[in-house]
Design a binder for these strands. Structure first.
Lengths: 298, 298
DNA sequence: TTTAATTATGCCATTTATGGATTAATTATT
DNA sequence: AATAATTAATCCATAAATGGCATAATTAAA
């Protein structure tokens, strides 16, 4: 009793084909179903729409009237879906993203000129407030997170695994001595994001874990990096973050044979049913950050 | 995967209520169904339409766009159905009927002034060609038939059972003698529709059958009646048919204690799903012919 | 007139959707 | 801060729709 809308579409098909059978062939809906659905529609309305003879069908007066209306309605519905399809295919609209400021400044900013010119229809609304994984209540299209963000019922796609390296300022190393083995780090001030107590280091096939300590608990990469340039300790992070400091010799690499566990970058969305703008953004980031990984891996 | 059209309507309801629960209350569709149908719609389109939190829902960009389209489409569909509903309720249009000429002249014609003024929106297309029960191929809204017309898969509604009486011209009775018992009829020229050989006669609780013969096989009531007025035999028919002849003394009743089996009048339609014009016509005939039956029964 | 072809519908086993109660989760209230 | 209340999503037994096949009925062709 509530299939009226869909039956309308079937009715339009039958009338267009002027035959149940041809409509069945055209639509893939079996003729038994067509026949039953049209009958149900007629009963639902209370009027016969088609005069059926075994050889051909004709519209009744009511059917003629109804068809004219239905044709338009079904057509408009098709257009509505197509329009949404374009939204799926043609990236446009406002892209609302929540990102860590350090990721935005270091990785995203350099990619924006190309992205923006490739997808001129997209405008941007970036929120760099740290850690806001509300996603469900906040109207973000996507959030970028670094580290392991395993929030339940959110979709996390890994964009990159950035290799990390150890850095310190020349003056810090002068004062505290340069470590020559990973275990030496336990005697040093190791500035870490949050208060985790263990760094995993790799050298070719070797792997070792060192528990590291620090006076600081800080949730800002920029601040940790700034402290490192002020000779406050050793840091472990992707080289891109400290590229400037390396150029200016404010920092230099420590234990250059060793590297830390890659820092994962995730794009987090509330659903997999994404509009084109979001899909393109994530895809673009994934491609370009992947390149970055490969180019710096070795 | 093919419920898109109906899900559109549900989506509109949910958005109007801005809540699955309220939409469920408003529409009677359980919220579990709403939830599943909206999800199916989103998967079908490939885009999320609603941002759901446990406390409230919001439209996504795509949802906003889609809603504006859907609202209009659903509204138009509702209007289309209402318009057809009016067709059901407000009798109008051309009424195409096939009727026996004798029925039309004798019974229908006198009723037409009242019917026509009660339903001014109806115009008429009467076909008085004898016996055309095509119905399915011919675009008749209704056919009136007298006698027993038990055509399969056509809907026959009995409009009246008209009592029949025996009539003959005074001169015929002079020449052939006046029957005093039903069995006397077997010696007379009994003019009959078609070539049936038996008349069933009633007198209060008595019933008797007489086999009757005639030189004629005729399928026209008018012709039989004309022959009777020309002293050619005895006829058995409703009194209304011969009312004029009775007034003019061209015919008078024979065996006045006896009457024949009632002649049934049927309205035959192809379907029960009738537009108002047809329903009103049949209803009107039924009422007025019924009155006729009762008034003449005794 | 007979034959063949075409079409809508009835039937029934299978697939699919439904709906009431439960669950998980979040907001408003105390 | 903790509780209560409200809401959307999930589960599963039941109900309904589907689709392939057979049938009836009719027209076109032979």
């Amino acid at each position: 009793m509530e299939h009226l809308l869909n039956d309308m579409a079937l009715f339009v098909e039958v009338v267009k084909a002027m035959s149940f059978r041809r409509a069945a062939n055209a639509t893939g809906v079996p003729n038994s179903t067509l026949s039953r659905r049209i009958s149900a529609l007629e009963k639902g309305i209370g009027l016969r729409l088609l005069h059926r003879t075994t050889r051909k069908i004709e519209l009744t007066e009511a059917g003629q009237l109804y068809y004219e209306r239905c044709k338009r309605i079904v057509e408009e519905a098709r257009l509505a879906h197509e329009q949404l399809g374009e939204m799926l295919a043609q990236p446009s609209g406002v892209l609302r993203a929540s990102l860590p400021v350090d990721f935005a400044v270091t990785f995203l900013a350099p990619l924006m000129p190309e992205f923006s010119s490739r997808y001129p229809g997209i405008t941007f609304d970036f929120d760099l407030t740290p850690r806001r994984v509300d996603m469900v209540s906040e109207p973000f299209d996507v959030a970028i997170r670094m580290g392991e963000s395993q929030d339940s019922n959110l979709i996390a796609r890994q964009l990159a695994r950035l290799p990390t390296y150890l850095y310190a300022s020349p003056r810090y190393l002068e004062l505290s001595g340069e470590p020559s083995e990973p275990t030496d780090l336990e005697q040093h001030e190791c500035l870490n994001i949050l208060k985790s107590g263990e760094w995993t280091l790799h050298k070719e096939t070797q792997m070792t874990k060192v528990s590291v300590g620090s006076k600081f608990v800080i949730n800002s990469v920029a601040m940790i990096r700034r402290l490192a340039t002020l000779d406050m300790g050793i840091i472990l992070m992707p080289k891109e973050i400290v590229a400037d400091d390396l150029d200016n010799r404010r920092l230099r690499r420590v234990l250059p044979e060793w590297q830390g566990s890659p820092a994962s970058v995730y794009a987090i969305t509330e659903t997999r049913l994404l509009p084109a703008k979001t899909r393109c953004f994530i895809e673009f980031l994934s491609e370009h950050l992947d390149k970055l990984c490969i180019s710096t891996q070795y």
